[in-house]
């Protein structure tokens, strides 16, 4: 097709030279997702909202909606200008199970994800891990080392979360910009490894 862009993305033919990519930061409530985004974002993190019942229903009018109970779900996100051609968005995804519909839309086209875990509540990360495993979204686990929390080593965390050996686990303190940066670097290095291995093995 004559007007097809090289990456087959939808868009105006005259809009060239700039593209957006996204990474997700998932994890349980209060684990520090927004803190991590804040630590590395070039803008003060923004909050956007989506309406619970709007998703996937294909609604084209709101007739009768006044009788429904609706909820909105908030998403915090930050932005990093990578270079003149690429903008990276980081989305903190709501942790609770009932918001997983939101993860679905968010995970489409995401380069990868960080599952942020708290060793005092490791079970809060199970949902996110299961979700990304089942969707085939590559992810790493970052363990936020809260003050006063018992320090576990990587092997213990890996066992407790039952994650595959190839999934990186990184200890971090998301309040620290350098530490948060290292989490993203670790994720991107992992994504490169996965992509290179996939290309070599011809699995894509």
């Amino acid at each position: 097709m004559a007007f097809e862009t090289s990456d087959r993305s939808a868009g105006s033919p005259e809009m060239t030279g700039v593209r957006a990519v996204k990474l997700l930061v998932a994890g349980g409530f209060g684990v520090g997702k927004t803190t991590l985004v804040t630590a590395v974002s070039e803008i003060k993190p923004l909050r956007t909202e989506e309406r619970l019942s709007a998703i996937g229903a294909g609604v084209d009018d709101l007739t009768g909606v006044e009788r429904k109970t609706t909820t909105t779900v908030a998403l915090d996100f930050g932005r990093i200008t990578i270079n003149s051609e690429v903008v990276l968005y980081l989305f903190g995804t709501p942790g609770q199970d009932r918001f997983w519909f939101m993860w679905k839309e968010l995970s489409v086209g995401a380069l990868g994800a960080v599952v942020l875990a708290d060793t005092r509540r490791l079970e809060d990360s199970f949902g996110a891990i299961d979700f990304f495993e089942s969707r085939g979204t590559p992810f790493i686990v970052a363990v936020n080392c809260f003050d006063g929390a018992e320090i576990y080593d990587e092997v213990e965390v890996r066992q407790a979360l039952a994650i595959d050996d190839h999934v990186p686990v990184q200890l971090c303190d998301v309040r620290d910009r350098e530490s948060s940066k290292r989490v993203l670097v670790r994720l991107l290095e992992y994504l490169m490894t996965v992509a290179t291995a996939g290309a070599a093995a011809g699995t894509w």
Binding site: A10, A20, N83, E85, V86, G109, L184, L188, E189, A195
Partner: peptide, 24 residues
């Protein structure tokens, strides 16, 4: 406007990943 490429568009773009890694 420009939307991100659909996930079905095949293998991850290694050059893009490298650019994002360098930027971070």
């Amino acid at each position: 406007f420009r939307s991100p490429p659909p996930p079905t568009s095949g293998r991850p773009d290694i050059k893009l990943l490298q650019a994002v890694l360098d930027g971070v």
